[in-house]
């Protein structure tokens, strides 16, 4: 049996919009429309899409916060909304923007409270906590009140808090939002290890393509409440988001650079900054930089990865032209 199973999952909201001076009209907004997917134990799935695509609404329905308008959904074999409390003991949930820790308590005490709330046996709790403390290097700030932690430290605490009851499934809603690079890397490494060693299933929403790249073997792309694409990351990425952009700052302005395998997308400052788009399969960034340096002295370079929004935009274009390589269930 799948760990998560959603069939034709649907959620509509009724909004009241002002019409004229005093009258208000109800109208229905579809947030999630006939979403279907199944996630097996041990998978790592990125659930992505632009803001307002229906990501959070889906997550809320999977975790039992929100009751679906229609369709079928089971998580760990339970109907989430009807058996919210039971489900809560089997899954872990991390909200990137909402803390589940007690802001005025030391981190360790928050963990202690969660042990009682989730009724975790003392020994199992201690084992899991020790492991998290070690891997996430939380020793130095375990006794610090949560309100004094940096965002990176707090997120490590949040993830630990979601794992102390040993859930088979960890749902993360924007876990890396606002984190500095080092914290992101540390968190990703930890989650990857959790999946590899414990077999914990990961489902995460994110806007950060690197989260997906390092963590997710599978991607579910959603837009306007519908699943746009669902398939292994490797395939999607190869097909859709191969183009990267090299931004070069040159010592002096030059005319748009014409280089094999790259095209100039944008020119700034009369040509002293140029945006070169290239295909990662055909050309390495290093080779391109060398080629640029032969034309003009280079002051600075940076490589832009395609934004998740670009990937989705490309997906849209491909779908319009019916060239989408992955199954759209």
């Amino acid at each position: 049996m799948s760990l998560i199973e959603a069939r034709d999952l649907r959620r509509t909201f009724t909004l009241r919009r002002k019409v004229g001076r005093f009258r208000r009209q109800r109208h229905e907004v579809v947030a999630v429309e006939d979403v279907s997917f199944a996630i097996e134990a041990g998978e790592t799935v990125g659930y992505v899409g632009p803001n307002g695509a229906g990501k959070s609404t889906t997550i809320k329905m999977l975790t039992g916060i929100l009751v679906p308008t229609g369709g079928f959904v089971r998580v760990c074999g339970l109907e989430p909304a009807a058996r919210r409390r039971e489900l809560a003991g089997r899954i872990g949930v991390v909200f990137g923007q909402r803390s589940q820790l007690w802001w005025d308590l030391p981190l360790l005490e928050s963990f202690d409270l969660l042990r009682d709330i989730f009724r975790v046996p003392r020994a199992a709790h201690a084992d899991r906590l020790d492991e998290c403390v070690e891997l996430l290097e939380m020793g130095p700030f375990l006794h610090t009140p949560v309100r004094q932690l940096s965002l990176g430290q707090r997120m490590r605490g949040e993830v630990t808090a979601a794992l102390l009851h040993g859930p088979r499934l960890l749902v993360l809603d924007e876990p890396t939002i606002g984190l500095d690079l080092e914290s992101k890397v540390r968190l990703r490494r930890f989650l990857a290890r959790l999946n590899a060693e414990r077999g914990t299933t990961l489902l995460l929403t994110t806007h950060d393509l690197d989260d997906i790249e390092t963590l997710c073997r599978r991607l579910v792309v959603i837009d306007h409440g519908r699943v746009l694409a669902d398939g292994p990351l490797a395939g999607l990425r190869a097909e859709v988001a191969r183009e990267r952009t090299l931004v070069v700052d040159l010592e002096r302005p030059v005319p748009p650079l014409e280089l094999p395998g790259a095209r100039v997308a944008h020119v700034e400052n009369d040509g002293s900054r140029q945006h070169l788009v290239f295909d990662r399969e055909r050309l390495t960034a290093a080779a391109l930089i060398t080629a640029v340096a032969e034309r003009a002295p280079v002051h600075d370079v940076s490589v832009l990865e395609p934004e998740i929004a670009d990937v989705i935009r490309r997906l849209y274009e491909l779908r319009e032209s019916r060239a989408l390589p992955v199954v759209d269930r």
């Binding site: 975790t63 039992g64 916060i65 409390r85 909200f95 909402r98 803390s99 589940q100 709330i117």
Partner: peptide
């Protein structure tokens, strides 16, 4: 408003 109520809903208590 801040969504903290949702956090309470993913705990096994009323």
């Amino acid at each position: 408003r801040t969504g903290k109520f949702d956090v309470l809903l993913v705990r096994p208590l009323g």
